[in-house]
Design a protein around this nucleic acid. Structure first.
Ligand SMILES: [Mn+2]
Ligand SMILES: [Mn+2]
Ligand SMILES: [Zn+2]
Ligand SMILES: [Zn+2]
Lengths: 149, 149
DNA sequence: TTATTAACGGATAATCTTTATCGATAATAA
DNA sequence: TTATTATCGATAAAGATTATCCGTTAATAA
């Protein structure tokens, strides 16, 4: 995990560089994203921000995420069903390991997909800009609770 | 590409086996999915079905897709924005190459992710059931039209 | 062939997440 | 400190998918 303080500084610097303002609500959202390793949802972020700023609107969370996506400081994981999840600690594309039982999302240690990407470029002529790799399954805990019943 | 006729027979057999009925509308949808290699959207399927059965409802397309997902005879590719895309010719998980310019989705030839999956199982204890791998970029045509302006 | 019955089709309402809108407010620079 | 706008908060709107309801029909067996 990247040091949350360092990530926060990176995010702030990038916002300043692109002429975005640092508001208290925004800063609170940045802190949550920089330090979380559990890929929070919008509702999750919203709930935490409201502890410090009770009047915060859900739209503010969404709008901040849109800005962070624009400048590449958060990785959005969209799923067909339910809400998106966000990784602000590690904003560049990387594989994820998702438990369909409890919703946990982890960052596994895996070598990159560089070789595969290169082969694709040569074979298809595509200019590949990004990728997404998700593995779905059941975490050890959910395997237990499933076999228990 | 798998032979569309063979895929159609597989889909019909699987539906029968699970006590689902083969209706004219359903059959039309199956044929489209079995023979298409361009990962059609719901609207795309809907438009084609209406040529033969003008009274078909959009809900019927959705309901048929839900059934096919249940029995594993179609692969759903959900994206955060816009509608889903479907692969009925190749229903098992496989990588996709997606042009963000024109929306084309292709099935590239790539060796499997078997090694990566095994390593993940050992390292994390997860029971991995499925995966998804998408590469995003610009197809050769879209690269040209972009550089032209 | 006909009767039976549960599944299906069509129409549309409801749901859910995300985005758009807009007046009020506050961050930033001069 | 003041002026300029980006941003906030509240809420409406959009868009895709699912739920609901009831008349119809495919599948099965008598
Ligand atoms: Mn991650
Ligand atoms: Mn495919
Ligand atoms: Zn789990
Ligand atoms: Zn293209």
């Amino acid at each position: 995990m990247t040091d949350p303080k360092k990530r926060l500084d990176q995010m702030i610097a990038k916002l300043r560089k692109n002429d975005f303002r640092i508001t208290p609500q925004r800063l609170a959202i940045l802190k949550i994203l920089a330090s979380s390793t559990n890929h929070p949802s919008v509702e999750n972020i919203y709930g935490k921000v409201k502890k410090d700023f009770p009047t915060t609107s859900l739209a503010t969370v969404y709008k901040t995420l849109i800005v962070l996506k624009e400048i590449g400081e958060v990785l959005e994981l969209g799923f067909g069903d339910g809400g998106n999840r966000y990784d602000g600690n590690k904003p560049n594309p990387h594989p994820h390991l998702i438990c369909t039982g409890c919703g946990t999302i982890m960052d596994p240690d895996l070598e990159s997909l560089g070789d595969m990407t290169e082969a694709l470029k040569r074979a298809t002529g595509f200019q590949i800009l990004t990728h997404r790799l998700d593995f779905f399954g059941l975490c050890p805990d959910c395997q237990k609770s499933r076999s228990a019943r």
